[in-house]
């Protein structure tokens, strides 16, 4: 898995916040987030594969983290009520979705007013050469599915997010990791 890390979103968390992680991996971002928000907050991790959820739940039990919950579900159909979370985080997952507008609309829906989105993801910074495109397909689906950075920003704005900021890794490659921040208006 071409994980790109999400330290910025986790560093911005405050004690007591309610955090939703879209797509778990092994749950590492959930565990780091749980330590930041402390016992007054709560982290929910959502993943569509039962193996990942079982693994994350087992790890949470081993670490004796009581403020983390895991649910089996799709990021395109988030199974929580509107305005339930202060922060939505995600690490190299949204690019895997074949319906990114729907993922972002769902993230917007479950965020409380003024809630924050903090996503690490892969974005395209230019058109890929044919060789790069072929290599990208071979390397990982998340590279092939990466949106152009400007298109990602436009999609967030069209969804209703404000204060959209995309911090793109400085690289010659056409597909790079980026940190994407946005906020649901009050």
């Amino acid at each position: 898995m071409a994980g790109c890390g999400n330290p910025v979103a986790i560093a911005g968390l405050a004690p007591g916040e309610r955090v939703l992680d879209l797509g778990l991996g092994g749950g590492i971002d959930c565990f780091l987030a749980a330590q930041r928000i402390g016992p007054a907050g709560e982290v929910w991790g959502l993943d569509m594969t039962s193996e990942m959820v079982q693994l994350a739940r087992h790890n949470a039990a081993t670490m004796e983290l009581a403020n983390v919950r895991f649910r089996l579900g799709e990021i395109e159909d988030i199974p929580v009520a509107d305005a339930s979370f202060d922060v939505v985080i995600s690490n190299c997952v949204i690019n895997l979705s074949t319906d990114k507008p729907r993922v972002l609309a769902e993230a917007f829906r479950v965020l409380a007013p003024c809630g924050r989105l903090g996503v690490s993801d892969m974005v395209r910074t230019r058109a890929l050469t044919p060789v790069e495109a072929r290599d990208a397909e071979a390397w990982a689906g998340c590279v092939a599915g990466a949106l152009p950075a400007a298109e990602f920003a436009q999609l967030l704005a069209a969804t209703g997010f404000v204060d959209v900021a995309i911090d793109v890794e400085d690289s010659e490659r056409g597909v790079v990791s980026a940190y994407i921040a946005a906020r649901r208006p009050a």
């Binding site: 569509m48 039962s50 959820v53 079982q54 739940r57 895991f70 649910r71 089996l72 579900g73 799709e74 159909d77 199974p79």
Partner: peptide, 16 residues
């Protein structure tokens, strides 16, 4: 109906 098994609620869309 959405099942809870091994402590994990399965809230995948029913068709999936």
């Amino acid at each position: 109906w959405y099942p809870i098994r091994d402590g994990i609620p399965n809230l995948l869309p029913p068709e999936l």
